[in-house]
Protein backbone atom coordinates (compact mmCIF):
# COMPACT_ATOMS: atom_id res chain seq x y z
CA UNK A 1 0.00 0.00 0.00
CA UNK A 2 2.79 2.36 0.94
CA UNK A 3 4.55 1.48 -2.31
CA UNK A 4 1.51 2.42 -4.42
CA UNK A 5 1.07 5.68 -2.55
CA UNK A 6 4.68 6.54 -3.26
CA UNK A 7 4.25 5.60 -6.91
CA UNK A 8 1.15 7.79 -7.18
CA UNK A 9 3.04 10.71 -5.62
CA UNK A 10 5.86 10.30 -8.13
CA UNK A 11 3.41 10.17 -11.06
CA UNK A 12 1.52 13.24 -9.83
CA UNK A 13 4.74 15.13 -9.34
CA UNK A 14 5.91 14.24 -12.83
CA UNK A 15 2.62 15.45 -14.28
CA UNK A 16 2.79 18.78 -12.44
CA UNK A 17 6.34 19.60 -13.51
CA UNK A 18 5.40 20.05 -17.15
CA UNK A 19 7.46 22.05 -19.62
CA UNK A 20 6.31 25.49 -20.74
CA UNK A 21 7.29 26.87 -24.14
CA UNK A 22 8.35 30.46 -24.82
CA UNK A 23 9.58 32.29 -27.89
CA UNK A 24 12.03 35.14 -28.35
CA UNK A 25 10.20 37.11 -31.02
CA UNK A 26 11.34 40.15 -32.93
CA UNK A 27 8.70 42.74 -33.76
CA UNK A 28 8.38 46.37 -34.70
CA UNK A 29 7.17 49.36 -32.70
CA UNK A 30 6.80 52.96 -33.79
CA UNK A 31 7.66 56.06 -31.79
CA UNK A 32 8.03 59.64 -33.02
CA UNK A 33 7.42 58.44 -36.56
CA UNK A 34 10.44 56.17 -36.19
CA UNK A 35 10.14 52.41 -36.24
CA UNK A 36 12.47 49.99 -34.57
CA UNK A 37 12.71 46.26 -34.05
CA UNK A 38 12.56 45.02 -30.50
CA UNK A 39 12.87 41.57 -28.98
CA UNK A 40 10.42 40.13 -26.47
CA UNK A 41 9.83 36.80 -24.73
CA UNK A 42 6.32 35.68 -25.63
CA UNK A 43 4.18 32.62 -24.94
CA UNK A 44 3.52 32.09 -28.65
CA UNK A 45 5.49 32.61 -31.82
CA UNK A 46 3.41 35.72 -32.56
CA UNK A 47 5.13 38.94 -31.44
CA UNK A 48 3.66 40.75 -28.42
CA UNK A 49 5.32 43.97 -27.16
CA UNK A 50 5.16 42.85 -23.51
CA UNK A 51 7.34 40.15 -22.01
CA UNK A 52 5.50 37.09 -20.73
CA UNK A 53 4.96 36.40 -17.04
CA UNK A 54 6.25 32.91 -16.29
CA UNK A 55 4.45 31.11 -13.48
CA UNK A 56 5.76 27.87 -12.03
CA UNK A 57 5.13 25.80 -8.94
CA UNK A 58 7.23 26.11 -5.83
CA UNK A 59 9.54 23.46 -4.41
CA UNK A 60 9.70 21.35 -7.52
CA UNK A 61 11.77 21.21 -10.67
CA UNK A 62 10.32 22.88 -13.76
CA UNK A 63 11.25 23.02 -17.42
CA UNK A 64 11.19 25.95 -19.85
CA UNK A 65 11.62 25.46 -23.57
CA UNK A 66 12.80 28.70 -25.19
CA UNK A 67 13.09 29.19 -28.94
CA UNK A 68 15.56 31.81 -30.07
CA UNK A 69 14.72 33.14 -33.54
CA UNK A 70 17.03 36.16 -33.14
CA UNK A 71 20.13 36.31 -35.34
CA UNK A 72 22.61 35.96 -32.45
CA UNK A 73 23.21 33.65 -29.53
CA UNK A 74 21.77 35.07 -26.31
CA UNK A 75 22.12 34.31 -22.61
CA UNK A 76 18.96 33.71 -20.59
CA UNK A 77 19.28 34.28 -16.86
CA UNK A 78 17.14 33.98 -13.76
CA UNK A 79 17.75 36.16 -10.71
CA UNK A 80 16.36 36.44 -7.21
CA UNK A 81 17.04 40.13 -6.43
CA UNK A 82 20.83 40.27 -7.04
CA UNK A 83 21.49 36.54 -6.80
CA UNK A 84 21.98 34.71 -10.10
CA UNK A 85 20.01 31.44 -10.04
CA UNK A 86 20.91 30.16 -13.50
CA UNK A 87 22.41 31.24 -16.79
CA UNK A 88 21.79 29.37 -20.06
CA UNK A 89 23.03 29.97 -23.59
CA UNK A 90 20.28 30.16 -26.22
CA UNK A 91 21.75 29.37 -29.61
CA UNK A 92 20.39 31.26 -32.57
CA UNK A 93 17.71 29.42 -34.51
CA UNK A 94 17.40 26.70 -31.87
CA UNK A 95 15.19 25.72 -28.96
CA UNK A 96 16.69 25.08 -25.56
CA UNK A 97 15.18 23.14 -22.69
CA UNK A 98 16.08 24.80 -19.43
CA UNK A 99 15.83 22.87 -16.21
CA UNK A 100 14.77 25.18 -13.45
CA UNK A 101 15.76 23.85 -10.06
CA UNK A 102 13.27 23.64 -7.22
CA UNK A 103 12.70 27.20 -6.02
CA UNK A 104 11.05 28.52 -2.90
CA UNK A 105 7.90 30.59 -3.21
CA UNK A 106 8.58 34.13 -4.31
CA UNK A 107 9.14 36.67 -7.05
CA UNK A 108 12.08 36.10 -9.40
CA UNK A 109 13.01 37.77 -12.63
CA UNK A 110 14.35 36.55 -15.93
CA UNK A 111 16.38 38.65 -18.30
CA UNK A 112 19.03 38.55 -20.94
CA UNK A 113 22.57 38.97 -19.67
CA UNK A 114 23.53 42.42 -18.37
CA UNK A 115 25.36 44.62 -20.84
CA UNK A 116 24.60 44.61 -24.55
CA UNK A 117 21.90 41.95 -24.32
CA UNK A 118 20.00 43.65 -21.49
CA UNK A 119 19.46 46.65 -23.78
CA UNK A 120 17.01 44.44 -25.69
CA UNK A 121 14.45 44.97 -22.94
CA UNK A 122 13.84 41.24 -22.54
CA UNK A 123 13.16 41.16 -18.83
CA UNK A 124 10.18 39.82 -16.96
CA UNK A 125 8.68 38.10 -13.98
CA UNK A 126 9.14 34.51 -12.93
CA UNK A 127 6.51 33.85 -10.28
CA UNK A 128 7.09 30.79 -8.15
CA UNK A 129 3.91 29.75 -6.36
CA UNK A 130 2.71 33.38 -6.24
CA UNK A 131 -0.98 34.19 -6.60
CA UNK A 132 -1.94 37.83 -6.89
CA UNK A 133 -4.92 39.78 -8.22
CA UNK A 134 -3.04 42.11 -10.58
CA UNK A 135 0.50 42.37 -11.92
CA UNK A 136 1.85 45.68 -13.20
CA UNK A 137 5.11 45.40 -15.10
CA UNK A 138 6.35 48.96 -15.40
CA UNK A 139 8.96 49.63 -18.00
CA UNK A 140 10.43 52.25 -20.25
CA UNK A 141 12.06 52.01 -23.67
CA UNK A 142 14.95 54.07 -25.00
CA UNK A 143 15.11 53.53 -28.74
CA UNK A 144 18.85 54.25 -28.78
CA UNK A 145 19.35 51.37 -26.36
CA UNK A 146 17.15 49.07 -28.44
CA UNK A 147 19.11 50.00 -31.56
CA UNK A 148 22.43 49.47 -29.81
CA UNK A 149 21.31 45.93 -28.95
CA UNK A 150 20.46 45.25 -32.59
CA UNK A 151 23.89 46.58 -33.59
CA UNK A 152 25.56 44.37 -30.94
CA UNK A 153 27.15 47.24 -29.05
CA UNK A 154 26.62 49.29 -25.90
CA UNK A 155 24.73 52.55 -26.25
CA UNK A 156 26.92 55.61 -25.80
CA UNK A 157 24.02 58.00 -25.20
CA UNK A 158 22.47 59.10 -21.92
CA UNK A 159 19.45 57.06 -21.01
CA UNK A 160 16.47 59.03 -22.29
CA UNK A 161 13.48 56.75 -22.82
CA UNK A 162 10.67 57.65 -25.19
CA UNK A 163 8.10 55.07 -24.20
CA UNK A 164 6.75 54.36 -20.71
CA UNK A 165 4.41 51.44 -20.25
CA UNK A 166 2.51 49.22 -17.84
CA UNK A 167 2.23 45.60 -18.99
CA UNK A 168 3.40 46.79 -22.40
CA UNK A 169 0.56 49.29 -22.72
CA UNK A 170 0.85 53.04 -22.79
CA UNK A 171 -2.05 55.18 -21.56
CA UNK A 172 -4.82 55.24 -22.76
CA UNK A 173 -4.26 51.63 -23.94
CA UNK A 174 -3.92 50.70 -20.26
CA UNK A 175 -7.59 51.57 -19.78
CA UNK A 176 -8.63 48.83 -22.21
CA UNK A 177 -6.68 46.00 -20.60
CA UNK A 178 -8.55 44.16 -17.84
CA UNK A 179 -5.27 43.02 -16.28
CA UNK A 180 -3.89 46.57 -16.08
CA UNK A 181 -6.90 48.68 -15.16
CA UNK A 182 -8.15 47.56 -11.74
CA UNK A 183 -11.89 47.00 -11.59
CA UNK A 184 -12.93 46.27 -8.03
CA UNK A 185 -15.64 46.91 -5.46
CA UNK A 186 -15.84 48.79 -2.19
CA UNK A 187 -14.68 46.44 0.55
CA UNK A 188 -12.60 44.18 -1.74
CA UNK A 189 -9.05 43.31 -0.81
CA UNK A 190 -6.96 43.87 -3.93
CA UNK A 191 -3.34 42.72 -4.03
CA UNK A 192 -1.15 44.14 -6.77
CA UNK A 193 2.42 43.13 -7.66
CA UNK A 194 4.45 45.92 -9.24
CA UNK A 195 7.67 44.94 -10.97
CA UNK A 196 10.10 47.42 -12.50
CA UNK A 197 11.54 45.88 -15.66
CA UNK A 198 13.19 49.10 -16.82
CA UNK A 199 16.45 50.92 -16.28
CA UNK A 200 15.32 53.64 -13.89
CA UNK A 201 13.23 53.91 -10.70
CA UNK A 202 9.61 54.99 -10.82
CA UNK A 203 7.70 56.81 -8.10
CA UNK A 204 4.18 55.45 -8.26
CA UNK A 205 1.37 57.67 -6.97
CA UNK A 206 -2.10 56.38 -6.12
CA UNK A 207 -5.00 58.82 -6.24
CA UNK A 208 -7.81 58.53 -3.73
CA UNK A 209 -6.13 55.98 -1.51
CA UNK A 210 -3.21 55.03 0.59
CA UNK A 211 -2.09 51.46 -0.03
CA UNK A 212 -0.31 49.08 2.31
CA UNK A 213 3.08 47.90 1.09
CA UNK A 214 2.92 44.25 2.13
CA UNK A 215 6.26 43.11 0.70
CA UNK A 216 9.10 44.85 -1.07
CA UNK A 217 12.56 44.01 -2.30
CA UNK A 218 12.56 47.47 -3.87
CA UNK A 219 12.61 49.45 -0.64
CA UNK A 220 12.48 46.78 2.08
CA UNK A 221 12.29 49.32 4.89
CA UNK A 222 8.95 50.51 3.46
CA UNK A 223 7.33 47.12 4.04
CA UNK A 224 4.33 47.69 6.29
CA UNK A 225 4.06 51.39 5.42
CA UNK A 226 0.85 53.01 4.32
CA UNK A 227 1.72 55.15 1.31
CA UNK A 228 0.17 57.12 -1.51
CA UNK A 229 3.50 57.48 -3.35
CA UNK A 230 6.35 54.98 -3.32
CA UNK A 231 9.40 54.20 -5.43
CA UNK A 232 9.90 50.95 -7.28
CA UNK A 233 13.54 50.47 -8.10
CA UNK A 234 14.97 48.99 -11.27
CA UNK A 235 14.83 45.14 -11.26
CA UNK A 236 12.81 45.21 -8.04
CA UNK A 237 9.22 44.58 -7.03
CA UNK A 238 6.71 45.35 -4.32
CA UNK A 239 3.28 44.09 -3.37
CA UNK A 240 0.64 46.64 -2.46
CA UNK A 241 -2.76 46.02 -0.90
CA UNK A 242 -5.76 48.21 -1.56
CA UNK A 243 -9.00 47.99 0.43
CA UNK A 244 -11.25 50.60 -1.20
CA UNK A 245 -13.86 52.31 0.94
CA UNK A 246 -15.46 54.62 -1.61
CA UNK A 247 -16.44 54.28 -5.25
CA UNK A 248 -14.88 56.21 -8.05
CA UNK A 249 -12.20 56.35 -10.68
CA UNK A 250 -8.72 57.05 -9.33
CA UNK A 251 -5.60 57.25 -11.50
CA UNK A 252 -2.34 55.56 -10.61
CA UNK A 253 0.77 56.93 -12.28
CA UNK A 254 4.46 57.62 -11.99
CA UNK A 255 5.04 60.99 -10.31
CA UNK A 256 8.22 61.41 -12.31
CA UNK A 257 6.42 63.53 -14.86
CA UNK A 258 8.48 62.45 -17.85
CA UNK A 259 6.86 59.01 -17.53
CA UNK A 260 3.29 60.23 -18.04
CA UNK A 261 3.93 61.43 -21.56
CA UNK A 262 3.89 59.80 -24.95
CA UNK A 263 5.95 61.27 -27.74
CA UNK A 264 6.54 64.24 -25.45
CA UNK A 265 2.82 64.90 -24.97
CA UNK A 266 0.58 64.51 -21.92
CA UNK A 267 -1.23 62.35 -20.94
CA UNK A 268 0.33 59.08 -21.92
CA UNK A 269 2.77 56.48 -20.75
CA UNK A 270 2.75 55.07 -17.26
CA UNK A 271 -0.83 55.74 -16.14
CA UNK A 272 -3.57 53.30 -15.19
CA UNK A 273 -6.76 53.50 -13.15
CA UNK A 274 -8.51 52.11 -10.12
CA UNK A 275 -12.19 51.80 -10.99
CA UNK A 276 -14.07 51.16 -7.75
CA UNK A 277 -17.78 50.37 -7.87
CA UNK A 278 -20.30 49.95 -5.07
Amino acid sequence: MRFFALLLAIVLHAELSFAQSFFLNKGTITEKQATIDILRLNQSSIFDSSNAVISISENQANQLIISNSFQRNLTFQIYKTDDLILSELLKTGASKTIEIPSLTKGVYRYQLKNGIEAQSGVKGLLLVGVKVDFVWRIKELDMDYAKAFLDDKLSNTDYFPERFSINGFIYPQTMQDVKTKVNCKVGDTVDILIFNAGYMPHSMHVHGYHVLITESDSNPNQTGWSKDTFPVQKDRYCFIRLIPDKPGKYPVHDHYMGSVTVEGNYPGGMITMLDVSN
Partner: peptide, 20 residues
Protein backbone atom coordinates in the same frame (compact mmCIF):
# COMPACT_ATOMS: atom_id res chain seq x y z
CA UNK B 1 2.84 60.49 3.17
CA UNK B 2 0.75 61.64 6.13
CA UNK B 3 1.00 58.37 8.02
CA UNK B 4 3.08 57.16 10.94
CA UNK B 5 5.45 54.37 9.92
CA UNK B 6 5.36 51.11 11.94
CA UNK B 7 8.80 51.62 13.51
CA UNK B 8 10.96 54.74 13.56
CA UNK B 9 14.10 54.57 11.43
CA UNK B 10 17.24 56.26 12.70
CA UNK B 11 19.25 57.55 9.76
CA UNK B 12 21.03 60.66 8.57
CA UNK B 13 20.48 60.01 4.85
CA UNK B 14 16.98 60.07 3.42
CA UNK B 15 16.00 59.63 -0.24
CA UNK B 16 12.68 61.25 -1.07
CA UNK B 17 11.17 60.35 -4.44
CA UNK B 18 8.89 62.55 -6.57
CA UNK B 19 5.53 62.99 -4.86
CA UNK B 20 6.64 61.51 -1.52
Amino acid sequence: DGRKIPADIVTNTIDVYPGE
